[in-house]
Structures are given as structure tokens and as C-alpha cells.
């Protein structure tokens, strides 16, 4: 049994409209200094398969081959960005995760036991932990059903 973490995000040449919308909402909050927001959907996949199979899942199920790319095994982080990850608390219904289990099985791939989903955000610009927590709590997550974690840029 292995735990895979897959990030699905827009290719650099495709506008990340979700990210742009969030940037507008952040400005609405009166927070300035952030230049760009990029987003990704994160899948935590629990199953007994190897990297080649994960590639198939990424290509055929999770990412739109025209506009999106995926990464697993390594994070798609840069040294200069802040990152924020939001995930469901245990026990909260994750409908997309459940559908992903079915999607993987429908591809003829056996061995998937569970999928949980979440969101990841990369922020370029000037930021501190306090501001990031405000953004998370006011815009990007609901503490009733979700938790978040974040990382500062590498010094």
C-alpha cells in the first residue's frame, strides 16, 4: 500500500482563472502586495500501484491534457512562493474523492482503497503568516469542515 499525492494545476501558458478570482477577492479584503495566485487540486490516493499506473491516472483521469499538468512524488513548489494547502477534516464527506475512486476503478485499475481531495495555492508577492491566515480563513477554507497548513518561501 502506498500513499500518493497528486497535484493537478494549469499549465503556465493557460490562465488560472480561479487564481485570478482569488487575487481579486484578496484585494477586496484590503490586502495588497500579492502579485499572483496559482491553484491546484490535490488528490491523496491510497492504493497498491506503481508510478506508471499513477501516470495513467494522471493523464487519463485527473488532468485535462490540453490545459492542465500534474505532478506526483514531488511538490510543484518554487523557492520564492508561499504555499497553502486546504483539506477536509476526517469524516467529512468528500464526494469528489469518492467519484475519483470509481473513476480509477472504471479505468480498469484495481487496488485503490481511498481518495481524499483538497486544494493548494501558491502566492507570489509580499506576505506574512498573519496575512496568509486571514486569507485562508476568510476566503479559502471553512474551519467547520476543513484544516489548512502553509509554508513560507525558502530563505
Amino acid at each position: 500500500m502506498k500513499n500518493w499525492k497528486v497535484e493537478v494545476y494549469y499549465k503556465p501558458e493557460v490562465p488560472d482563472t480561479v487564481g485570478q478570482g482569488i487575487l481579486e477577492d484578496i484585494t477586496d479584503l484590503g490586502i495588497n502586495g500579492i502579485d499572483a495566485v496559482r491553484t491546484a487540486t490535490v488528490y491523496w490516493i491510497e492504493g497498491s500501484f506503481e508510478a506508471e499506473t499513477m501516470d495513467r491516472i494522471g493523464t487519463e483521469l485527473l488532468a485535462d491534457p490540453i490545459t492542465q499538468a500534474y505532478a506526483f512524488g514531488t511538490d510543484n513548489d518554487t523557492d520564492t512562493d508561499w504555499t497553502l494547502e486546504v483539506q477536509f477534516k476526517p469524516g467529512v464527506t468528500d464526494a469528489v474523492g469518492d467519484s475519483t475512486v470509481k473513476g480509477i476503478t472504471d479505468l480498469g485499475i484495481a487496488g485503490v482503497t481511498a481518495v481524499r481531495t483538497g486544494n493548494k495555492y501558491w502566492f507570489t508577492g509580499t506576505l506574512n503568516t498573519e496575512v496568509l491566515e486571514t486569507i485562508a480563513q476568510r476566503l479559502l477554507m471553512n474551519e467547520v469542515i476543513q484544516t489548512f497548513s502553509y509554508q513560507a518561501p525558502k530563505p
Binding site: K89, V92, T93, D94, A95, D98, S99, E143, V144, I145
Partner: peptide
């Protein structure tokens, strides 16, 4: 706001 257990999440496909 902290009454987590009352929250329901929907699954339209189901």
C-alpha cells in the same frame, strides 16, 4: 460556527 457535526455535504452524482 463550530458546530461541525451539523454540516452536510452533498453528492449530486449519487
Amino acid at each position: 460556527e463550530s458546530l461541525g457535526s451539523v454540516v452536510q455535504i452533498g453528492n449530486p452524482i449519487m
